[in-house]
Computed example of a mutant assay.
Amino acid sequence: MSTARHDRRESSPIPLLDPPFWDAYDPNFPDSDGRPMADNQTQYKWMVTIAEGLDDLYRDRLDVLVACDLLWYFDPDDRRRCCAPDVFVAFGRPKAPRHSYKEWLEGHAPQVVFEIHSPSNTPAEMGRKLRLYDGRGVEEYYYYFPEEAAGQFDGWRRGPGGLEPIASTDGWTSPRLGVTFEAPPVDNALVLRRPDGEAFQHVQDIMKDRRAMRRLARVERRRRRAEQGLREEAESRRAESERLARDERLRREESDRLREESDRLREEAVRAADDERRRREAAEAEARRARDRAERMAARLREMGLEED
Rank of each mutant, 00 (worst) to 15 (best):
P36T: 08
D18M: 09
G107I: 05
R279W: 04
A285P: 01
R259F: 09
D196N: 15
L177A: 09
I50T: 08
F114W: 12
V138Y: 02
E240S: 09
D23Q: 15
E254T: 15
E52C: 01
V186F: 06
E125T: 08
S2I: 07
E220D: 14
L230H: 12
E233S: 12
Q201Y: 04
P123C: 00
R279E: 12
D263H: 10
E164V: 11
S236L: 14
G159C: 02
N121V: 02
L130N: 03
P15H: 05
S262A: 15
D78T: 06
P85S: 09
W156G: 07
W172D: 03
Q204V: 12
V87I: 03
E235N: 14
R300I: 14
C83H: 01
E10V: 10
D69W: 00
E164R: 05
G135Y: 10
P76F: 10
P146G: 11
Y25Q: 03
R223L: 13
D275G: 00
P160V: 00
P165V: 02
A51D: 00
E284L: 08
D154C: 06
R302A: 15
A299Y: 08
E260H: 12
R278I: 01
T42R: 10
E198S: 15
R237S: 02
K45N: 14
R238N: 10
R257W: 15
D275L: 08
A51K: 01
W104Q: 10
D292Y: 06
R8P: 01
R222H: 13
P30V: 05
A298E: 15
E261S: 13
H108M: 03
E286S: 07
R222W: 13
E125P: 02
